[in-house]
């Protein structure tokens, strides 16, 4: 599993880095960023799905 943020849609709500801090971080302006290559270890798959389903802008994709 891999995650990706559509930076055109992200508005910096920060739900992803609240809910899945191992997978997402903030940039200097608060927009979400995928940490590293965005590869989700099996233990973080639930957190990844939570981030997707709580993003108000629907900016996160699971690839």
């Amino acid at each position: 599993m891999k995650v990706r943020i559509d930076s055109e849609r992200c508005q910096g709500h920060g739900r992803c880095y609240d809910l899945a801090p191992d997978l997402f971080g903030e940039d200097d302006e608060g927009y979400g960023q995928v940490i590293g290559e965005g590869i989700v270890p099996p233990d973080d798959e639930r957190a990844a799905r939570l981030a997707v389903s709580n993003c108000p802008e629907r900016a996160i994709e699971i690839l």
Binding site: Q11, G12, L50, S53, N54, C55, P56
Partner: peptide, 20 residues
């Protein structure tokens, strides 16, 4: 509630700047 895509802080370019 685990799935909660609420819009209390708005949506789009005017997302509440003070939400954090």
């Amino acid at each position: 509630r685990e799935v909660n895509r609420h819009v209390a802080f708005g949506l789009g370019i005017h997302r509440c700047v003070g939400s954090h």
